[in-house]
Structures are given as structure tokens and as C-alpha cells.
Amino acid sequence: MDGAEMNIYAKVKEAGPLLSVRGLSKFYGSRIGCADVSFDLFPGEVLGIVGESGSGKSTLLSCLAGHQAPDEGGIVFDGRDMFAMAEPERRRLARSEQAFVHQSPRDGLRMGVSAGGNIGERLMAVGGRNYGAIRETALDWLGRVEIDGARIDDRPSAFSGGMQQRLQIARNLVTAPRLVFMDEPTGGLDVSVQARLLDLLRGLVRDLGLSVVLVTHDLAVVRLLAHRLMVMKSGHVVEQGLTDQVLDDPQHGYTQLLVSSVLQV
């Protein structure tokens, strides 16, 4: 038994981080966007980032995803320094090994393009040139996100909000990215639709071994999805740790306030 025990933690220690962030800061003039953020994200791990509006969590996410250039700090993805990388390579990574799920499907989908075309775009962007194969993959992914394959040629504008969000997820995951950034993915959805999406995301994370950086203000969502949690306030990380530990035994005053402010149902 001792041998087996050594094994599971050795495995944990051995695996290098997929994403390493050190001293990341972004300023808007004299205002702090986010300041001195450091963390490691490991393969298969979901990191939740919570905080109120203006806490810097969205700024942090957009810096991580390369949508904004931070003022200080470094990001290493899979051993590669994201800032030393030429833009073409960074964008190639962004559409193959990384993905970004927006809060509003309108920002993440092409509303004038069919569901199949939306899913196929990333495949074609990385060189897919066989129509039949692209369509087959698109059908497979529609099934995985529980959208009827018969809707493959419909435009997302004819879909419900929950379907649009699931389509956005399929569109992002079709190239089997290893790292997915999610900005309030369950934000604008009805509660029952949220539940289905959460279940879907959990299954995909587990089955595909995805690493996820999940930004949300919904503590119930992070409890169900995130392994680890980072709490932000005024651009700073005030507390981080195991998700249920941070939520059930918060150490920082701000986290205590945040947790105790949630309405119980």
C-alpha cells in the first residue's frame, strides 16, 4: 500500500503545470486592472476566479487569453513563453490548443453562419479541407453538446440561449484544445438550462482532461465546477485554495463577506 501511496502523489508532483502565471499586472492609467497575480494551472484542473464586478477577474482573463497585453509579468503555456512568441504563433495556439468561451454566445459565435459552419471554422482554420470529414465532426460535436443533428444547417439565431451556449462550447472544443478560458459561461441562462450546461461542462472536463480558467461571480457554479478557487478584490488575489475549503472556511475578511452574502435557498 505504501508504494501505491507514493505513486499518486508522485504523479501529482511530477506533472508540470500547463499554464504558469507570474506577477501579472495590468494598469489602466493609475487605476489597477489586476496586480501581481501568480498561479499554476495543471492538466485536467479547473481554476475558478471569483470576485465582484470590477475586481479585476475579467481583466486577468483577457490578459491570460492574450486579448490584452499585460504591463508586467509572464505567462508560460506548456513550456512556451507567451510574450516571447511571435503573434502568428500566439494566434495559432489560440485557435488550436486554447479556446475562449464568452458569456454571450453572440460574441463567440458567427450568427450568420450555420451551426455546422460555426463548429467547422476552427477545423478549416487549422487546415481541414475535406467537406465530408468536417461535417461528420460537426455532427459528432452537436451530439456531444446535446443538439439535434438535424439542426446542423440552421443558424444560431434560430437557437435558444442554452443551445447557443452549447454550440459555442462545441465550436471551441472541436480542435481538442488543452486550455479553455471561460467568462461567465452560465451567465445569461435560465437556472434549469444552467444545470444542464454545468453537467455537460463537468463531463467534458473529465473526459477530455481539459484545463479550465473559469471566471464567474456565481459561487454555486464554482463549487460544482472548479477544483481550485482564486478570490479577487480590487485587482488583487486575496485568497486561493481548494474550492470547498475557501468557500466553507474562508480565511480572508473579504471572502468571508462574499460567502456570507450569498442568499440561501
Partner: peptide
């Protein structure tokens, strides 16, 4: 500039699909 031409094929894909 970056030779990101996936979108061009999306248009062709849409044509065939439709």
C-alpha cells in the same frame, strides 16, 4: 497578415451545406 484563412472556407462550406 497571419494567413488565417479558415473563414474563407467557412463561406464555401456554407454554400455546399445550403
Amino acid at each position: 497578415a497571419l494567413e488565417e484563412y479558415g473563414l474563407m472556407h467557412v463561406k464555401l462550406y456554407e454554400d455546399i451545406a445550403r
